[in-house]
């Protein structure tokens, strides 16, 4: 195992989560703002989550071919649920009095969303992103099975050669990575919050 594999793994996680935010945040906002779209968006993101990760990657591979693009696309779809849901729930949970005041004072829809609703639901949205990032570290193991590389390849090799040390070192690295990432995001969340206060 070397740094290249480690970085490869992080690269996959990072890009899939960033893309998932770019897709999930607008979807969550759309579910909140536009009632007809609510159920389809929420149900679809739930449905994606019920597909076994390996099967989902396999299906994406049939369309996009083996490689990192497939892994990132698969992980993106898989991370949608926590981000979409938490965005929607966070927006929905804002004090109705605050929403009514914002409307009654003559703030436009976009204005209310950007200056009041999204900032207030930020902790909830960030929690969703955190869940997505940490679970992605584990799921990215399947990347190795569709030609994406990463730490999965180390574990796969360990299983094939029945090398317990190799399996363990891959697993422990993954666990450490998940823990460090979680801690880092907790810290980031905290400092963003105190920065605004």
């Amino acid at each position: 195992m070397n740094t290249k594999i480690l970085l490869e793994h992080l690269y996959i996680v990072f890009f899939s989560v960033v893309l998932s935010i770019l897709a999930g945040l607008p979807l969550g906002v759309a579910a909140y703002l536009w009632k007809p779209a609510r159920k389809p968006i929420l149900r679809l993101s739930e449905l994606l989550q019920t597909i076994p990760a390996l099967a989902l990657l396999g299906m994406v591979m049939l369309v996009l071919g083996a490689g990192k693009t497939t892994v990132i696309t698969g992980l993106l779809l898989y991370s949608l649920l926590p981000i979409v849901h938490n965005t929607y729930i966070g927006l929905e949970a804002i004090d109705p009095g605050v929403k009514r005041a914002a409307r009654g004072m003559g703030m436009s829809r976009w204005d209310r969303l950007m200056t009041v609703e999204l900032p207030l639901s930020f902790p909830m949205i960030f929690a969703g992103i955190r869940i997505a990032a940490v679970t992605s570290v584990g799921i990215a193991v399947f990347a190795a099975s569709v030609g994406g590389g990463g730490l999965g390849s180390v574990i796969n090799r360990g299983i094939r050669t029945q090398n317990i040390q190799l399996i363990l070192s891959g697993t422990l690295t993954l666990m450490a990575m998940a823990l460090v990432l979680d801690g880092l995001m907790a810290w980031l969340e905290h400092s963003l919050k105190s920065g605004r206060r």
Partner: peptide, 19 residues
């Protein structure tokens, strides 16, 4: 939106923006 900006509005829930 223009109408509401010219009319003050106070509600029981107060509704100050906490952020």
């Amino acid at each position: 939106v223009a109408l509401r900006r010219k009319i003050g509005y106070v509600i029981q829930e107060i509704g100050l923006f906490p952020n």
